[in-house]
Deep mutational scan, measured.
Amino acid sequence: STVKVRLGHLEVTLHNVSEEDVRELRELWKNGADEEDLRRWLEEWKK
């Protein structure tokens, strides 16, 4: 499914993403990950 995730002022649209992935991303964000960390996660996730 396609999910729009809003993290601060960063809005990311993920395609074919699982609930688990979204949860993981939100956890990262809650734990103080900055945009760099999130971008890195997204790069990994896209592979």
Results as ranks from 00 to 15, higher is better:
residue 24 E to G: 08
residue 37 D to N: 08
residue 3 V to I: 14
residue 6 R to G: 03
residue 10 L to I: 14
residue 22 V to D: 02
residue 2 T to Q: 06
residue 14 L to V: 05
residue 9 H to D: 14
residue 29 W to H: 04
residue 13 T to D: 03
residue 17 V to P: 06
residue 41 W to V: 02
residue 9 H to M: 13
residue 11 E to I: 13
residue 16 N to W: 06
residue 44 E to G: 10
residue 40 R to F: 06
residue 5 V to R: 01
residue 38 L to Q: 01
residue 11 E to N: 11
residue 9 H to N: 15
residue 20 E to Y: 06
residue 9 H to S: 15
residue 12 V to Q: 02
residue 35 E to F: 10
residue 30 K to S: 12
residue 39 R to C: 04
residue 12 V to W: 08
residue 3 V to A: 02
residue 9 H to T: 13
residue 1 S to I: 15
residue 32 G to D: 06
residue 25 L to T: 00
residue 1 S to G: 08
residue 26 R to E: 12
residue 18 S to G: 06
residue 13 T to R: 03
residue 12 V to I: 14
residue 2 T to V: 10
residue 14 L to F: 05
residue 27 E to V: 05
residue 18 S to Y: 04
residue 23 R to A: 13
residue 43 E to M: 13
residue 20 E to T: 10
residue 47 K to F: 08
residue 42 L to Y: 15
residue 9 H to W: 10
residue 47 K to T: 08
residue 13 T to V: 14
residue 28 L to Q: 03
residue 33 A to G: 09
residue 24 E to D: 11
residue 15 H to C: 08
residue 40 R to E: 06
residue 15 H to G: 03
residue 3 V to H: 03
residue 15 H to R: 08
residue 22 V to F: 13
residue 27 E to S: 07
residue 22 V to L: 15
residue 8 G to P: 04
residue 42 L to N: 00
residue 4 K to A: 06
residue 20 E to K: 14
residue 35 E to K: 05
residue 1 S to C: 14
residue 3 V to L: 11
residue 10 L to F: 14
residue 42 L to K: 01
residue 14 L to E: 00
residue 11 E to R: 08
residue 47 K to L: 11
residue 16 N to I: 02
residue 29 W to S: 04
residue 7 L to C: 06
residue 14 L to K: 00
residue 31 N to D: 05
residue 38 L to S: 00
residue 27 E to H: 06
residue 43 E to A: 12
residue 29 W to Q: 11
residue 35 E to Y: 12
residue 23 R to E: 11
residue 23 R to C: 09
residue 27 E to M: 10
residue 38 L to R: 01
residue 7 L to W: 09
residue 24 E to L: 12
residue 36 E to R: 09
residue 24 E to I: 14
residue 38 L to F: 11
residue 30 K to P: 01
residue 28 L to P: 00
residue 46 K to F: 14
residue 15 H to S: 06
residue 35 E to L: 11
residue 28 L to W: 07
residue 4 K to N: 07
residue 9 H to Q: 13
residue 23 R to F: 11
residue 37 D to G: 09
residue 3 V to N: 01
residue 27 E to N: 10
residue 19 E to F: 09
residue 36 E to V: 10
residue 31 N to L: 07
residue 35 E to D: 09
residue 32 G to S: 05
residue 31 N to K: 11
residue 1 S to R: 13
residue 30 K to I: 10
residue 44 E to P: 01
residue 3 V to T: 04
residue 21 D to P: 01
residue 22 V to H: 07
residue 39 R to W: 14
residue 41 W to F: 04
residue 36 E to C: 09
residue 13 T to L: 08
residue 10 L to K: 08
residue 2 T to R: 07
residue 21 D to F: 14
residue 17 V to I: 10
residue 15 H to A: 05
residue 40 R to K: 12
residue 20 E to M: 09
residue 22 V to M: 15
residue 5 V to F: 14
residue 19 E to T: 09
residue 39 R to F: 11
residue 47 K to C: 07
residue 14 L to Q: 00
residue 36 E to Y: 09
residue 5 V to K: 00
residue 37 D to Y: 10
residue 40 R to I: 08
residue 38 L to W: 04
residue 25 L to G: 00
residue 21 D to E: 09
residue 19 E to L: 09
residue 17 V to W: 04
residue 8 G to W: 02
residue 4 K to W: 02
residue 11 E to G: 03
residue 19 E to M: 10
residue 41 W to D: 00
